[in-house]
């Protein structure tokens, strides 16, 4: 049977703005992927452990509260600790350009800003995990 792409979509931080996360989750699902949705208020520990248990290919994190420079590095660190560096991490939210650069340096694959076409996110994932 063909391999399915599995994506964890989570919202770290304390804010409840999950419109983006849910729109992206729906779009990826409609593109034939399996979405594991863990919802609001996720700690980096919860995200990393869920990603490992679910053996996902990709993790998408939506952050709008300004805590991205705390959340992403912690998630990256935990992924490494758990032997899951192979998982591709991308993010979305209001993140200033200079922070985007810093995040890409620590291994975040891509940051999608406001106004992103969900088709671009699908493409980004498909480029890495083509349908077999």
């Amino acid at each position: 049977m063909a391999r399915k792409v599995r994506v964890l979509v989570a919202k770290p931080g304390l804010d409840g703005h999950d419109r983006g996360a849910k729109v992206v989750a729906n779009a990826l699902k409609d593109a034939g992927m399996e979405i594991i949705y863990t919802g609001l208020h996720q700690t980096p520990e919860m995200i990393a452990e869920s990603a490992v248990q679910e053996d996902v290919d990709v993790v998408g994190l939506s952050i709008l509260s300004g805590a991205h420079m705390t959340m992403f590095p912690r998630v990256m660190e935990l992924m490494k600790e758990k032997g899951a560096e192979h998982i591709v991490i991308f993010g979305g939210g209001i993140i200033p350009a200079e922070d985007v650069e810093k995040l890409e340096k620590i291994g975040v694959a891509r940051i999608f800003g406001p106004g992103t076409d969900t088709g671009d996110i699908v493409k980004f994932i498909r480029e890495r995990f083509p349908e077999e």
């Binding site: 931080g13 304390l14 804010d15 208020h41 700690t43 709008l64 509260s65 300004g66 805590a67 420079m69």
Partner: peptide
């Protein structure tokens, strides 16, 4: 900020990275 909105003091673990941000 989000910790105030969610009822956490600034030195609570869940407040990390969010104090005074939005």
């Amino acid at each position: 900020d989000m910790p105030t909105i969610m009822g956490y003091d600034s030195d609570h673990k869940r407040s990390e990275g969010e104090v005074g941000r939005c």
